[in-house]
């Protein structure tokens, strides 16, 4: 199954991409997605401070991710 990952601001800059897809065998937690992501694109400094969203809703690190979901790693925001 496929998980879509979105990166923004300094995380996208470090990864040199805003979108990453990972193939996994079973449902997993956001925390596990975070680990797999960095195995794929390399260590992302500051990702542990990112807010987490699945399908555009904030979730906890333990939030579950299933086939087709979009996981976003949201660096501390600075709008306004």
């Amino acid at each position: 199954m496929m998980i879509n990952i979105l990166l923004f601001a300094n995380l996208a800059q470090q990864a040199e991409t805003e979108k990453v897809s990972i193939e996994v065998n079973s449902a997993l937690s956001v925390k596990e997605v975070r680990t797999l992501l960095q195995q794929k694109v390399g260590k992302l400094t500051g990702i542990e401070n990112a807010l987490l969203a699945v399908n555009e809703e904030y979730v906890e690190l333990t939030g579950q991710v299933k086939d087709g979901d979009t996981v976003a790693f949201i660096p501390p925001v600075s709008g306004g």
């Binding site: 925001v77 600075s78 306004g80």
Partner: peptide
Amino acid sequence: IKEIVPIW
């Protein structure tokens, strides 16, 4: 906005 809106 400065807390929860994903804008950078």
